[in-house]
Design a protein around this nucleic acid. Structure first.
Lengths: 191, 191, 191, 191
DNA sequence: GATGAATGAGTCTTCATTCAT
DNA sequence: CATGAATGAAGACTCATTCAT
């Protein structure tokens, strides 16, 4: 029983790593099986097919990310600066806990293999961040740009940075993240 | 001769569009042949194989991008603000002239199909931008963050934004690009 | 012990039904296990493998059919008409008692999965019927055609008819069987 | 051009033989490819998939059989005896010209792989034969049994006989077929 | 040069069979 | 004894690549 759960977990982890590194189409079932240390057929005991596996992964991690963002979210009357720090730190924490997850989500979002549920879950996550920007703009604290564009700036910056860290091109110390957080804040706040 | 060049060009264009839209692995040679209006076998008269085609494309457009960045680059004694505007506008222009090129470069950079030369060409492009940041940091005008991180912020922001434009999620008017340019400048400049 | 026998019986029954309905190749071990209400592994405690199961079934029912044909077979000096009626009624009775058996035998006879023993058992059954035809021909009462051909006529007719009944395309009343029996007799008797 | 047609023909022939001998499920694409002396992939240039191949075959041969039955069919006012001889000889001729076709049709009729069109074509063929029996019964010349049952008797007899011929268990001379034709006629005519 | 029919290596997926519990 | 989770061999099918025309 414990083993079975473990097997499913192994497959999900192997899938996450490989999908994030190579993308859905370049990842084969035998690759996942080898990395998960299970037989190829075993994957089909836990997932209907390759598409099902990638969607389960996507939804699971979008869910996790949403939870992290919601957790301890600053009160409604707290400052946008504080709220932004919470969101940014949430992304940092999410990435620390699930190394490839955010990169996987980003590279597979808009992929042809995602089903309706996956798209909805992702939209839900975006909406949360979007509403932060909308409120900030109303208060004149956030720069007057489309919310989507603001998200793109912050998410794009964060993810590219994360890629650098993954590849060992920068040292991921606390000072770096603080600096980037401030940089992103300056990118989105009204001047 | 003129015909032959034209066929090569058709194949490259078809490849660029399809690789950008679907990714390397989801794009088949027959797809490219159909879009290029040539026989599938003809592709192999111009390119050794599919990998060779994608690498040629990658190197060609990185080259083009480098050229655009170098062209009319502000004098050494001009202000970083001005230089940054040149770089940012260069990316905008590059994207206007070659709709799918930058997105293609971004999604295939770090792909498992790129060869050493392609990686070197890309690094060369980064170096150019990197040197801009290094100089700006020395002058105390650019934020004290690793150059790689600064590039990540700007490039990440720009590319994510470009994706939004491609997908029709934001309206790509001049005001938007000006706003984002300013936003990015605020992200990287020392405060 | 009684339980064990019962499980073997359940497996055989499930196998018979499924092989008759779907054929050997389209019937999976899990299907049989589910229908027999046993674990898939249990089947391998009673049968070496899938082929062994199908051969056991085949031989068992050919055996049963032979027994029915022999049982109360009319005396040697009785008329061929009477003997034929016995044979025909035997087939009807066999089919009534084991709904899918004769159809299973017919569709799997000459199948690539049958082993030598199964073929021999089947041949034995044919020999019994064959000898009836040979004797009848000697007496000038049965039509002068190869015994094999006569068997083909009767067995072919009966089995096709049985298929119609199974599929609900004709109503299996006593009058029908009597009519067909007479029809078959007219087909084989000398005129 | 001539070659291409020939390849398709080779595949169809190989498929017909193997499907007739082993059944749809026990016949693999590599088997067909080997027998047809083509690459496995080539089969997919001519047929969408295995199911498509079997349906094409089924429809083609049912069509051919219908044509043979219709060709030179005796005038409406000719005797049922004469009409029956035409039908029976048609089946003999069809089988002589396409050795495995009728057996293939018979064993795959009611198969789970046949599509609607195939079923309709087959029903059309049955209807032709059925109408002969119906008319004959009205005239009191054919035995009073359901038309389906009469077809079963004749078709069953013929096909089982054909199987014997295929397997070399009887010698397929003209006298045999004449004898069986007479036998079948006696089976269906009113007495 | 240009083509596209032909190929077979490599995918995903199923399922007979094994074996630890 | 009974089980069903795990496996990997084998099947259907795709597609990069070749080569005869």
């Amino acid at each position: 029983m414990e083993e079975a759960t473990s097997k499913r977990e192994h497959i999900l982890n192997a899938g996450l790593n490989l999908f994030a590194e190579r993308g859905f189409d370049a990842t084969t079932i035998p690759m996942i099986a080898t990395k998960a240390e299970v037989g190829a057929g075993t994957i089909y005991r836990y997932f209907i097919n390759k598409e099902n596996l990638v969607n389960e992964l996507f939804q699971q991690y979008v869910e996790t990310c949403i939870n992290i963002l919601h957790e301890h979210y600053p009160e409604t009357n707290s400052s946008p600066r504080e709220q932004f720090r919470h969101i940014f730190n949430g992304m940092v924490r999410f990435t620390n806990e699930h190394e490839h997850a955010l990169y996987f989500i980003k590279t597979h979002n808009h992929s042809h293999v995602l089903n309706e549920t996956s798209r909805e879950r992702f939209e839900e996550m975006l909406n949360f961040i979007r509403s932060f920007f909308e409120k900030g703009k109303e208060q004149g604290i956030i720069r007057d740009l489309p919310a989507n564009a603001l998200i793109a700036i912050v998410l794009g910056a964060f993810l590219e940075l994360h890629k650098l860290v993954r590849e060992g091109d920068v040292d991921p110390n606390a000072k770096l993240f603080e600096g980037v957080e401030e940089s992103c804040w300056d990118a989105i706040r009204a001047h």
